[in-house]
């Protein structure tokens, strides 16, 4: 990868990629693999960027598409998606963020379905329903209702985790 491209076009938006990759992984090794894969795909696809949307929207699209179709490297069995529900003991290892509340929130997010994770992450990143619809290919009208349901579920999960 051209280091200039990484420094100027990806690194300033690394926060977006990190937050997404963290939501789809449960340990540091996987997280770094996902992060690198997203960067690789951004670099591979960047010539297709045609300014029809914001660069951040474009990064979101690639990041979610990569995370939704990432094949985890495994040594013994065939490659598999890593979308299986995370076991409790693994989720308790999420120590990457210092803020305990965010840690609990990530634990709760990990218990959501993959699509719900994408929806809530985009909502928390203050993206409008229109942009969320554009990134995920959903109908803007349905997003608000779904997000309310996810928030309700997250609050319940958070309550359970904190008590």
């Amino acid at each position: 990868m051209g280091s200039d491209f990484y420094t100027t076009q990806i690194l300033p938006y690394a926060g977006i990629i990190i937050k997404i990759c963290r939501a789809y992984t449960n340990n540091q090794e996987d997280f770094e693999d996902y992060y690198q894969e997203v960067c690789l795909q951004i670099w591979r696809s960047h010539e297709r960027f045609n300014h029809n949307c914001a660069w951040t929207t474009w990064i979101y699209k690639i990041a979610f598409n990569v995370c939704l179709t990432y094949l985890k490297r495994q040594t013994r069995s065939p490659l598999t998606f890593t979308s299986d529900p995370l076991p409790e003991q693994v989720m308790s290892d999420i120590q990457f963020v210092q803020d305990e509340s965010v840690r609990y929130l990530y634990k709760a997010i990990h218990q959501l379905s993959e699509i719900d994770r994408a929806l809530i992450l985009l909502y928390l990143e203050q993206q409008s329903n229109q942009v969320i619809a554009e990134i995920l290919g959903l109908t803007a009208n349905n997003i608000g209702v779904r997000i309310s349901r996810i928030k309700h579920r997250l609050n319940k999960l958070l309550h359970n985790l904190e008590t």
Partner: peptide, 11 residues
Amino acid sequence: SKDQSSFEYLN
């Protein structure tokens, strides 16, 4: 292409 919406991409 990976730069389309997730639904279009997966579909």
